[in-house]
Design a protein around this nucleic acid. Structure first.
Lengths: 189, 189
DNA sequence: TGTACATCAGTGAACGCGCGTTCACTGATGTAC
DNA sequence: TGTACATCAGTGAACGCGCGTTCACTGATGTAC
């Protein structure tokens, strides 16, 4: 049953992709390794041929997931007639993003759980936060870098909170209102 | 070993208090019932004399914890020369609150986990969010109620996000900057 | 190019552990007379 | 008020289950000659 090196590397990527999605959808602790491997189309026993522990796959999936999210955000085209900031904010606080945590921002999906971790998992999270902040800060090219970064700090924090609360609340109208108000307030600034 | 009714009721309150603190400190899933009962000064077996399941204690601890937090926020004196909003925001985004999740806002401590729950737990969380929003909205007495509520929606979401990110990030300077920027931005509005 | 052998990705059963939950038991409390 | 008995908060051992992890095994791949 041995697979070629190319296939093995491909499998590893598939596990990481599935891990990011399952973790973001259900939470880290709530996702078992069997579930994760099944989502990648494998049985659980093979997991340790690719990773040393659950902690390692969490750290790697978080790092690559955050990287992918940042890249998508950077690569997404700015609609004509809109500022970059408005495009970022409206995409981040969209109904689609709210309803699809698996393919969305890992910080919003996992932020609460990441607070209780440490080591390389926590480092990955922290680095991802900084990268997203830097990307948002680029939307203020005419502003002094430190001011732009300070603004970006607030914008990202506020977006994470609004998305989380919009996902938590049970009333759909309230959920939509949270997203709308955050969009308005953040784009206006 | 039977205790009087008064003592039993007191024990129940003690369990709920310990539950709120342990859940907020370590997370809901990460807190075992043995750990919880030990924090209340009891052994784990007695748990089911007070609650039907872990879910029930989570729902009740969340409801009473949120209620207690709202009451504390409402009762805390406004420092002379400050507006009510500024007092709320500065207290919520203080270093003390960041470093003491056990006695702080359950929404910030548990928001990420609450997204994955349902039933009465989710309802409690949602109700607590609305109560906090209403209290913040009261700080805009001269504004039309719906506008005040809309502002409060954003302020609370942003505070939850900023507190969570400040707790997640590994760099202390960055953590403090997140809190500071959020304070400035929210009080200025 | 063909052959023999070592490698190792993937399988599925098994392990130990901690969790939520149950249970028999204890003994002070509350109640009935 | 005193006595006999039922109640039930709290204890600590035990249960079943699912988790992360380990392991013997399989068989296609890669390598050595």
């Amino acid at each position: 049953m041995k697979k070629s090196k190319v296939e093995a590397a491909e499998t590893r990527r598939r596990i990481l992709k599935a891990a990011r999605q399952e973790f973001c959808r259900n939470g880290i602790q709530a996702t078992g390794l069997s579930e994760l491997m099944a989502a990648a189309g494998l049985t659980h026993g093979g997991f340790y041929k690719h990773f040393r522990s659950k902690d390692q796959v969490v750290a790697e999936a978080l790092a690559s997931g955050l990287c992918a999210f940042v890249n998508e955000t950077e690569a997404s085209p700015v609609p004509p007639g809109k500022k970059g900031l408005a495009a970022i904010v409206e995409s981040y606080l969209s109904i689609e993003h709210r309803d699809d945590p698996a393919h969305g921002c890992p910080l919003a999906a996992l932020g609460g759980e990441l607070v209780h971790t440490d080591g390389s998992i926590r480092e990955s999270a922290s680095r991802g936060f900084t990268e997203l902040v830097d990307h948002i800060a680029k939307q203020f090219p005419r502003t002094k870098p430190e001011v732009a970064k300070a603004r970006a700090l607030f914008i990202l924090s506020a977006m994470v909170g609004a998305l989380t609360m919009a996902r938590m609340v049970t009333d759909p109208a309230l959920s939509a209102a949270i997203l709308d108000q955050a969009k308005k307030s953040l784009v206006a600034s």
